Simulated scan of single mutants.
Amino acid sequence: MRLQSRGAGLLTPTQAALPPFDLLRPTSLADARAVLADRPEAVIAAGCTDLVAAIREGLVPSTLVSLRNLDELRTVEHDGTALRIGALNTHHDGSAHPVLGAALPELADAWSAIATVRIRFRATVGGNLMARRYRYEMPVILGALETAMEFSTAAGERRCTVDEFVRRDPAAPEGRTLLHTLSVDTASLVAFRYDRSMRPVTTVALAVRRSRDGLRLTAGVGSEYRRAVLVRTDVPVAEVTAIDHAGAAHEMAGQLPDRVGDYAGSARYRRRIVEVLLRRQLEAAA
């Protein structure tokens, strides 16, 4: 991709030039909210790795809102009960942040392993989620952690979980609003593991949380070819060591719908892989 000398815009490999568009650069979250309220058709630009791909796929923005100057969306904070991650953190900066490393090192390790070096220094965690691409790993990782996504919309603030967002219609209005923060409950979290050894066929993230009656297990299952899926089970024990690892893994893998199957592996094959990986994760957590 390259620029035309007369300023007609970016050229895709098909040699089709983008028509002129308005480029806005808000300097605060409040400014960004105002811009989006005034221009609901605006396309948001963060790391731009997915924006370039979308343009190549036919996106023609009339207004582009760059978040580059919003440093307040690059914070990582932990108050002992909740971990809050700004959506503008790149994969490199976010995973290497000392607050994340101290609060949830397993998430830092999982996050640090995804993507290529070039993408890690440019792409943002918010963009990774908003792109809704099956092969991206953060929906699996953050979905298992039951992460809340916090949006600014023309109607005000709104929250939903990563799993809820992934399952919604991509044409829904939230796709054009501003994701500013990701929030993870750490108070009830007992253990977290992520296994990408079988990627691209399957990746599995597992979170173990304390519940009123024992422990709740939540697993995110993804692949390069299908939307991420969450499966859950509750076990009436107080410690991970007391869980029937094989039984819990078998039950959770059995919840996977038939749609997890594709040309790279049948649903039965994926259930078996997920069962083995979940058992190993539970054993490691114990």
Rank of each mutant, 00 (worst) to 15 (best):
L107H: 06
T177E: 15
T124E: 05
R272W: 07
P236D: 08
A284E: 13
R227Y: 01
T202D: 04
L36C: 02
D109W: 01
D50H: 11
L179I: 02
Y225M: 11
L129N: 10
M138C: 10
L282S: 10
A34T: 13
S183F: 01
R168L: 11
T202Y: 00
R210P: 01
I44S: 01
G175D: 07
A144R: 07
M138T: 15
A148R: 15
R216M: 13
H92T: 12
L83I: 05
S28F: 10
D163I: 07
R210E: 05
L18Y: 04
A108C: 07
G175A: 12
A191V: 07
S152E: 15
D163L: 04
G9C: 02
S152M: 08
D93G: 04
L189F: 04
L23G: 03
V190T: 10
G143F: 13
Q15M: 15
R132T: 09
S5K: 11
A172W: 06
E157I: 01
A108S: 15
L67V: 01
A191C: 08
Q255F: 12
L182K: 07
E251G: 00
P236A: 13
R176I: 00
T75D: 12
A8E: 14
R226H: 14
M130Y: 06
R122Y: 01
P257M: 07
Y136C: 05
T14N: 11
A172Y: 03
T181S: 11
A131K: 01
V117R: 12
V208N: 11
V60D: 00
V204F: 03
V237W: 06
L104S: 13
A53V: 15
G101Y: 07
T241D: 14
M149P: 11
I141G: 01
A148N: 12
T27C: 11
G80P: 04
G80Q: 09
A17G: 08
A115C: 13
L24D: 02
R132E: 05
V60C: 02
V65Q: 00
D244T: 13
L67C: 09
D79T: 05
R268W: 10
R232F: 05
D262E: 08
N128R: 02
D244S: 14
A207Q: 03
S152L: 14
L59I: 02
H245M: 08
